[in-house]
Amino acid sequence: MTVTADRFDDALRAGPRVVLQTPEGVPLVMTLASVGERAYAFTIDCLFAAIGLLALLFLSLLTQFAGSSLFGAVFVLAFFLLRNGWFLAHELRSGRTPGKRRAALRVVDARGGPLEPLAVVVRNLTREVEVFVPLVLLANPDFVLDQGPGLVRAVGVVWVAGFALVPFFDKKRRRIGDLLAGTLVVREPRHALQADLVAGAADGEDSRGEPAFEPAQLAHYGVYELQVLEKVLREEPTRSLVLDAVAEKVMRRIGWTGDPREFGGARPFLAAFYRAQRARLEHDLALGRARQSKTAATERGSRPSTMHRNSQ
């Protein structure tokens, strides 16, 4: 089963997690957004804002409004509002901008409480210095530091560019605006409610009877292996070499001597084993002694990181 463990281990892909204490008293486990995901969301938002300005320009060209000086006023005002207001308005309304929605990210209060409107304002006001000033500085240093000796300018560039790099060094990946506002940006994955694998028996998936497992045969694996098996069953197609290989390994380990074809092949056999193993481990869990993994009771007793939810 270790063959498949690498392929399916979510912990290898997931970012650092944070635990939010909700007012209801149930802690929520969330995954922090990576810097790349946030940059992606930000780029999308900038594109939207730029499209807004271009649309305004295009409309005014059509109506010959562009020539009048009132247009200048409207354009400058629109630029101000888009630059400062786009993020603000969206995050105030729903806690995420269209870019964050596409990247499946959300702004949350770091302490798990409600997201204060002023906190949203704070994190968006500081974006000016964290993002726009370094960008302008990189594009055209003269614009910000118009006169001054070369050394001062070099120090200025490094100093200001440093602000943009804070999320790379903070262990919760906060930018300065997040630090000031007490907010975090987390992933908001969507998980659909999938069929319960235990329900398979009730649906008459297998008409030739279930393989029965002795208590001793259910004592080999722990929670970690059960959940790897769950992933295999959910993600592999019915006729899969992986299923055959896993079934063979399980049979060898638990000392099962029958032929899985007796029950319709590797999948029904593994499904039945999953049901029996889960019933056993959940029973142990209720008694507070569920085994964490096949190695847990023997030598090291180390727990896989995916198990932290069930470990206490």
Binding site: P189, L193, Q194, L197, V223, Q227, R234, R278, L281, E282
Partner: peptide, 11 residues
């Protein structure tokens, strides 16, 4: 110990 169920409820 249903991982899919836990993921669903977390989200």
């Amino acid at each position: 110990l249903d991982q899919a169920l836990l993921a669903y409820l977390e989200s």
